[in-house]
Simulated assay, not measured.
Amino acid sequence: MTAPHAPLALTMGEPAGIGPDLTLIAWQRRDAASLQPFYVLGDPEMLASRARRMALDVPIVVCTPEEAMGHFASALPVVALDNRAPDTPGEPSREAAAAVIEAIETAVAHVAEGRAGGIVTNPINKKSLYDAGFRHPGHTEFLGMLAERFWPETAHEPVMLLAGPDLMAIPITVHIPLADVPGALTSKRIRLVARIADHELHTRFGIDRPRLALAGLNPHAGENGSMGREERTILEPAIAELREEGIDIVGPLPADTMFHPRARAQYDCALACYHDQALIPVKTLAFDESVNVTLGLPFVRTSPDHGTAFDIAASGKARPDSLIAALRLAARLSARGAG
Rank of each mutant, 00 (worst) to 15 (best):
A51T: 07
V293K: 05
Y39T: 04
L129V: 07
Q277V: 03
P165R: 13
L212C: 08
M54P: 13
W27M: 04
A179F: 06
V79A: 10
L76Y: 05
R94F: 14
L285I: 12
A265R: 12
T23S: 11
A265K: 08
L56R: 15
P152S: 08
A215I: 03
H139S: 01
M1R: 10
G339D: 11
M168D: 04
L56G: 11
L167D: 13
E14T: 05
L297D: 13
I196R: 00
C63S: 15
L8Q: 06
E141Q: 12
Q28Y: 00
G164Q: 03
A107K: 08
A169S: 15
L81N: 09
M46G: 00
M54K: 08
V250R: 13
I207D: 00
P7R: 13
A85I: 01
P182V: 10
P86C: 07
T294M: 07
S93G: 15
V40P: 00
G17I: 04
E157Y: 11
A147R: 11
T294L: 06
L47G: 04
H306S: 01
Q28S: 02
L323E: 01
D208P: 03
E223I: 01
A270G: 12
E244Q: 10
E67A: 15
H175P: 03
A221I: 05
K188T: 08
H156G: 09
D305Q: 03
D43I: 03
M12Q: 14
L22C: 09
N83Q: 12
A286W: 01
L333F: 12
P281K: 10
G17Y: 01
P182D: 10
I101M: 06
A179R: 15
D288A: 14
L329D: 05
H139K: 02
F259Y: 14
A75C: 09
L323N: 01
K126G: 04
I280R: 11
S322I: 04
N218E: 05
F72L: 12
P77A: 05
H175S: 02
A33E: 10
V181S: 02
A179S: 15
P20C: 07
A163C: 08
L242C: 00
P92Y: 06
P44G: 02
D198K: 06
F72N: 11
L235F: 05
T121W: 00
M258R: 06
L10S: 09
N218P: 06
A179K: 14
D268Y: 07
A221Q: 08
C63M: 13
G225Q: 01
L10D: 12
H220D: 01
Q266P: 03
T302D: 09
N83P: 00
E230Q: 13
D57K: 14
A286F: 03
Q266A: 14
V250W: 02
R189V: 02
R149L: 11
S34C: 14
A325R: 07
G222L: 11
G316M: 05
D276V: 02
E236Y: 03
L10I: 07
A338H: 15
M160D: 04
Y267C: 02
I104D: 05
V120N: 08
R243H: 00
R94V: 15
T173F: 03
Q277E: 02
G222N: 12
L41K: 06
S49R: 11
E67N: 08
E14A: 02
L285F: 09
L47N: 04
R211L: 06
